[in-house]
Design a protein around this nucleic acid. Structure first.
Length: 984
DNA sequence: ACCGCCGGGTGCC
DNA sequence: ACCGCCGGGTGCC
């Protein structure tokens, strides 16, 4: 009978589309965006797949084992998958092992109950096989039920109605029956406090710098000398690529490989893809290190494209270009260590039309112009696996390949060797399994390990558009001119889609967008190439598993995989899953195992879970920060950086207006406090706070429509008006509001009547699929398509009105006098002027122009192309280039380099100090020659002062959106913060 | 004999 | 499955 393989991931994901941050490390007390704030109120936790409570567990049985090949060890986790289409029973619940192979079904009567629970999403049901019974037909399974407290009753009722009794107790399901029927002593789960958890998580990526494998020099082809920490990284990366150590939590049990967390076994060595996460802080040279890796660690640790000293004769290149100096090559051969004509042509061609850096179409004797040694060696594959060039590195998920050599002897010493079903040869399973009880391993024959394709030689680098040019520049800058490195920029409509051509490159550079676009069509060229290595630059951008680009990246065919990212986790432990999946770290590339083994335990404060997470991260990640030290010395020495706070006094008139707004806000909020409805009216509260913060910057920032008071809206028109005001507040701060459905920045924003902001297409899809029952993903209020409010086409006159009736403010004056003083002292110093309010930046343009400052502006609304232009203009040292950049706090994301600036003016305090740091880091980085001075403007006696106070307290006060803290406590402290802010 | 009992056939959902 | 269940054969002890 053909085995039915059901891939688990898809089924699970559909239930998990909720955004939200179950394990949010967002950092601010009164979070700076609406949806974050409301997400943080605790309600969302229960809808999280990784949160929820354990209702209890139940012993059941798995039947029909003999029809399937999936095998299970004692103690192994299994997954339960609904099969509504099953022709024999629409309630069918299939049981699969860690590898996705079907083991059997849940017995009919129990399945009826489970189907009801699962289909209604009352609980997630997880299975563990506690022990094995010596028979071919059934095995026991302990089912545990996890869900929201409010669904507990429904689950218990459903089970009871069919005569099943849910057992509860702290260690239910944790103690595991031995084969002989005795029980392991129940393992006590050690819970961590929220604080311990927070610290542990903060440090997750820290201290991942111990000298993992010494240092390694780059190949000669790299002309930039590596700094010590870069040599260390290179060494570590080479080791990751070359060694065949088991992934974490796997043990070699004499020929079988056993996973200590899921208790599953495979016969074939589970190799993780060679690679990992290089998570160094920005500015430490991840790009250079990666270039060094590409050139230094080709097949068998040999360098790629050495300067061709040994190459006997120059070849004729079909598209040889002129060298930058204009020589055609013939002349400088001798001196340039025998570099043949055209060996440096690609350099520099990049600047103008970065279409093709260096096209080398020479296909004959391909290997030869790579590493000569390659040929002599033949094609051994590290001795571990046979090279089967014809066999693609296809994953045959869950396919049971029977290779029962030397099984018995080995198995004797495994205590889980009780046999269950034979892995008999061939597909059509023999009906009866011999009386002789051919004891076969409870092992899954693993997916056939992809054997290395020796023909794979190209490295594919995928990056955001904004850093494309950076890669081209750096490749040019760091690779010796006499080394002929073929780099192809796979970008633009004219890109060469020929797979042979792509395969024959040394490096192919493309963007996530191009990759995703190709992937969505048929026959994506990039997916047809067998790559040696794929590098994801700013790899955290694939954190959303539903995004097209993420899917496209997962489907690439490659031997080695790298993620470069300064911020591998942004808010949430969930961000890490995609990275782990990309690295194919078995078995966590399947979401269920990640959730069960890592995410849920960690989120719920289980110490063992955290230790496992730490071990896992440690073995795939290298991270150093700018403050890390190697042998007692800092990695890089940057100029000093100092922060000073400049207090701003409001004028008499401003003060009066401010106090008016503040009193009004206080009245409203104190009413909410008294009623205990602060959190229910959170959007209002935030709106009041944002208005006060805006007022501190400039009284006109509020705009005329933001003057409503928190009176309950009566008419639909009023409601609409209020919603638009809120929407404007959310979007107008310039912060990058995240849509809880797609987890990306909001596109085409709409606001629901419950005041949550989503992308229109995202929320429309929710409403379409849930119809009448549609509820807001964030607060579960009823939502209707007709009640979505769009951002009205901005009344342009208001904007121009604002500018025409220009007036200054105390804070604007403070800035301007600083800038003027600075210019008079030293007119070569460049400054960043940073605000969270893009409208404030607009206001600032006026006095800047008046005083004759040349400035540029960078904010979230600009296209990538425009951004790149602006950055280049600002960074340029050409005469007449701008002295000032107006920058919105969160724009541009990480990675942009503004090292031309050495002064930073932070116009308004951010809730999130990390956002400020990140912003400052854009100029305080490698390449910065001057000391960096940061000025924070704080209006005296205002909400801003209180924000700073709370920020400081917050540095060490923890709790917040941590799964461990109980929601009511969290709500209390949140309310306290608001009271502190408003001095109530 | 409209039962009980025996023993063979059979077996997930 | 060394079970349960079904249905045919059988029938005092």
């Amino acid at each position: 009978m053909p085995k039915q393989v059901v891939y688990l991931q898809g089924t699970m994901q559909s239930r998990w589309w909720f955004g939200g941050a179950g394990f949010s490390f967002a950092d601010d007390p009164v979070t700076e965006t609406l949806s974050q704030a409301i997400r943080g109120t605790g309600e969302e936790l229960d809808r999280e797949p990784d949160a929820g409570v354990l209702f209890g567990s139940l012993h059941g049985s798995v039947v029909g084992l003999r029809y399937y090949t999936g095998v299970v060890n004692k103690g192994e986790m299994v997954s339960l998958v609904r099969q509504p289409q099953n022709p024999f029973d629409r309630n069918a619940v299939m049981v699969a092992n860690v590898y996705g192979s079907q083991v059997g079904h849940i017995k009919r009567e129990l399945a009826a109950s489970l189907a009801n629970i699962m289909d209604n999403n009352f609980a997630r049901v997880e299975g563990v096989v506690p022990f094995r019974v010596n028979n071919q037909f059934t095995m026991p399974v302990v089912l545990s039920f996890w869900g929201r407290e409010e669904n507990r009753d429904a689950v218990v009722r459903q089970l009871t109605s069919r005569g099943f009794k849910l057992q509860t107790g702290p260690t239910v399901g944790k103690s595991i029956m031995r084969v002989d029927g005795s029980r392991d002593p129940p393992r006590k789960t050690v819970l961590l406090t929220a604080e311990e958890l927070k610290n542990a998580f903060d440090n997750l990526f820290e201290n991942l710098m111990e000298d993992k494998n010494g240092e390694r020099e780059a190949a000669e082809a790299v002309c930039t000398p590596l700094l010590p920490h870069q040599k260390q990284a290179l060494s570590w990366m080479c080791v990751c690529e070359n060694n065949t150590a088991l992934p974490p939590f796997w043990e070699d049990k004499g020929g079988l490989f056993y996973n200590t967390l899921t208790h599953s076994s495979v016969r074939e060595r589970p190799l993780r893809v060679r690679g990992g996460i290089l998570a160094d802080d920005m500015g430490l040279g991840k790009t250079l290190t990666t270039i060094a890796l590409i050139l230094s660690n080709f097949h068998h640790g040999k360098p790629l494209c050495e300067p061709e000293k040994s190459s006997p004769e120059p070849k004729a290149y079909t598209t040889a270009r002129k060298t930058p100096e204009g020589k055609s090559g013939d002349g400088d051969q001798a001196e340039a260590s025998g570099a043949p004509a055209g060996h440096s042509p690609c350099k520099r061609a990049s600047q103008a039309v970065p279409q093709v850096l260096c096209v080398d179409m020479v296909e004959e004797d391909g290997d030869e112009d790579w590493v000569p040694e390659q040929k002599a060696k033949g094609r051994p594959q590290g001795g571990k696996s046979k090279a089967t060039p014809t066999k693609k590195a296809a994953k045959t998920k869950g396919k049971a390949v029977s290779t029962s050599k030397k099984g018995g002897a080995v198995l004797e010493d495994l205590d889980f060797a009780a046999a269950l079903s034979g892995l008999t040869q061939g597909a059509p399973q023999k009906k009866r399994v011999g009386k002789g009880k051919s004891v076969v391993a409870p092992v899954e024959a693993s997916s056939s390990q992809s054997t290395d394709d020796p023909a794979a030689r190209a490295t594919l680098i995928i990056c955001p558009v904004s850093v494309l040019s950076n890669w081209l520049d750096q490749l040019e800058q760091h690779v010796r001119a006499d080394v002929k490195l073929n780099v192809y920029l796979y970008y633009g409509s004219e890109r060469n889609r020929d797979t042979h051509f792509l395969s024959s490159q040394h490096v192919v550079l493309t963007t996530y967008n191009v990759l995703a676009a190709d992937h969505s069509g048929s026959a994506s060229p990039l997916h047809a190439v067998s790559w040696l290595r794929v590098v994801l630059d700013e790899g955290h951008v694939i954190r959303n598993p539903n995004a097209q680009q993420s899917k496209a990246v997962l489907n690439l065919n490659t031997q080695r995989r790298w993620i470069l990212s300064g911020t591998p986790i942004q808010n949430n432990l969930r961000d890490l899953w995609m990275l782990v999946a990309f690295l194919r770290l078995k078995p966590f590339d399947v979401r269920e195992w990640w959730n069960r083994v890592i995410q849920r335990p960690v989120t719920q404060g289980d110490k063992t879970g955290l230790q496992n997470l730490q071990a896992l991260v440690k073995c795939i990640t290298l991270r150093r920060t700018k403050t890390s030290r190697v042998c007692g010395r800092p990695l890089v020495s940057l100029p000093e950086r100092s922060v000073r706070i400049e207090e701003v006094e409001l004028t008499q008139k401003e003060r009066e207006e401010y106090e008016l707004a503040r009193t009004e806000g206080r009245t409203t909020i104190s009413r909410y406090v008294a009623e205990g409805t602060v959190l229910r009216n959170y959007a209002d509260v935030l709106a009041i706070l944002v208005r006060l913060r805006q007022f501190c910057c400039h009284p006109d920032l509020l705009g005329k429509t933001t003057t409503y008071t928190g009176v309950v809206a009566v008419t639909p028109a009023e409601l609409r008006e209020r919603l638009i005001v809120k929407l404007r507040l959310v979007l107008g701060t310039g912060s990058d509001e995240e849509c809880a459905v797609c987890l990306d920045s909001v596109r085409l924003p709409v606001i629901t009547h419950c005041a949550h902001v989503y992308c229109r297409p995202c929320i429309a899809e929710v409403i379409r699929s849930e119809q009448e029952q549609a509820r807001c993903p964030l607060c579960r209020s009823q939502i209707k398509a007709s009640e979505l409010v769009e951002f009205p086409q901005e009344e342009e006159e208001e904007e121009s009105n604002l500018l025409e009736n220009w007036r200054s403010s105390s804070k604007v004056d403070a800035l301007m006098s600083s800038l003027l003083r600075l210019r008079s002292e030293d007119d070569s110093i460049r400054s960043l002027v940073v605000s969270q309010f893009t409208r404030f930046l607009t206001l600032l343009e006026i006095p800047l122009r008046e005083e004759g400052f040349k400035f540029v502006r960078l904010d979230g609304t600009m296209s990538q192309k425009r951004r790149a232009q602006v950055i280049q203009e600002f960074q340029s040292d050409a005469p007449g280039s701008p002295l000032i950049m107006l920058l919105s706090l969160k724009s541009g994301g990480v990675g942009i380099n503004l090292s031309a600036a050495s002064r930073v003016f932070l116009m308004d305090p951010a809730w999130n100090p990390a956002a400020e740091d990140q912003c400052v880091d854009r100029c305080h980085r490698l390449g910065q020659k001057r000391d960096v001075v940061i000025t924070k403007f704080i209006v005296k006696g205002s909400v801003e002062e209180n924000m700073v106070k709370i920020q400081r307290q917050k540095q060490d006060l923890v709790e917040k959106a941590f799964g461990t803290k109980n929601p009511s406590e969290r709500k209390t402290s949140r309310v306290d913060e608001i009271r502190a802010l408003m001095e109530l």
